[in-house]
Design a protein around this nucleic acid. Structure first.
Lengths: 141, 141
DNA sequence: CTTTTATCCTACCAAATTAGTAGGATAAGT
DNA sequence: ACTTATCCTACTAATTTGGTAGGATAAAAG
């Protein structure tokens, strides 16, 4: 039961962009890599996924910085999770088409469904603006 | 973000034992395997872990059935999870000794800590007696 | 206009984890 | 004596994870 490192790095990347929301020039990939202590090459993959999910864009042409595509307030933790994973399904039988061999009505599936929903709601209700605000209040004395 | 199949099978195994709490002869491994549509050999591993975690025991000698070691009400979903995994830590930096390369105070870690706690509380607050009761009310018309 | 540099894009890969199977020992019941 | 159910240790194929490598592209700097 772990989140993968890509999702974690992506969250921190998005946090940096949220903190620079007002900066029209965006943030350079290489600066993010440096701040997050991750190789530029690895960050390549992470940013590629974020772009594919339409969460970030580069403001100018090829050599420009990145910005969020929408307000930090409108980007949830779950949005970022979804850039790397399918819909949250903590066990396979929650997936559409997931099969279950038990013959009787499955009380375990009901339990998992509730837990799954609880985790998802938690991620959906936290947004990057709130995280950025918390970061500022904790770090800038 | 998935629970593994061992934990899932273990939950269903424990549910069967909880449903047979009053049955002093216990439940045979081979009957569980048949009901859960899993090979006896694979169930071997699962039951071995449950025994190691002191959640089940066999009532007689070698060829006897299994019973819960304590009341179903006193066994939580998290107890069963813990028979197969270390303490829940949805990201590594939540572990004791987990390191984090960020230089500033980490607001992400606080977020993950909260989510981790929420998941854990959910699993701790559901017990096998409650699941068994639900099973009965859903299946026995 | 050449060199540098930052992003973009596709492969590849080693290590770890997962979800089992296999083989046989042990011991109890018939 | 034979069958059968649990016990115990290995092994393994497939998938996932967490990256690295190489090079293309394009903009900017000199």
């Amino acid at each position: 039961m772990k989140f993968n490192t890509k999702t974690r790095y992506a969250l921190r990347t998005m946090l940096e962009l949220a903190l620079n929301e007002e900066n029209d020039e965006g943030v350079f990939q290489k600066d993010i890599a440096e701040n997050q202590v991750v190789s530029v090459k690895y960050l390549d993959h992470i940013i590629a996924s974020l772009k594919a999910a339409d969460l970030v864009e580069n403001v100018g042409g090829k050599k420009s910085g990145y910005k969020l595509t929408r307000l930090a307030e409108e980007i949830s933790v779950y949005d970022i999770y979804r850039a790397f994973e399918d819909e949250l399904a903590i066990i396979d039988c929650l997936l559409h088409g997931g099969k279950c061999p038990t013959k009787h009505l499955c009380v375990m599936k009901d339990y998992w469904t509730g837990l799954n929903q609880s985790i998802r709601s938690n991620m959906e209700s936290m947004n990057m603006k709130e995280l950025a605000n918390r970061h500022i209040s904790v770090n800038d004395k």
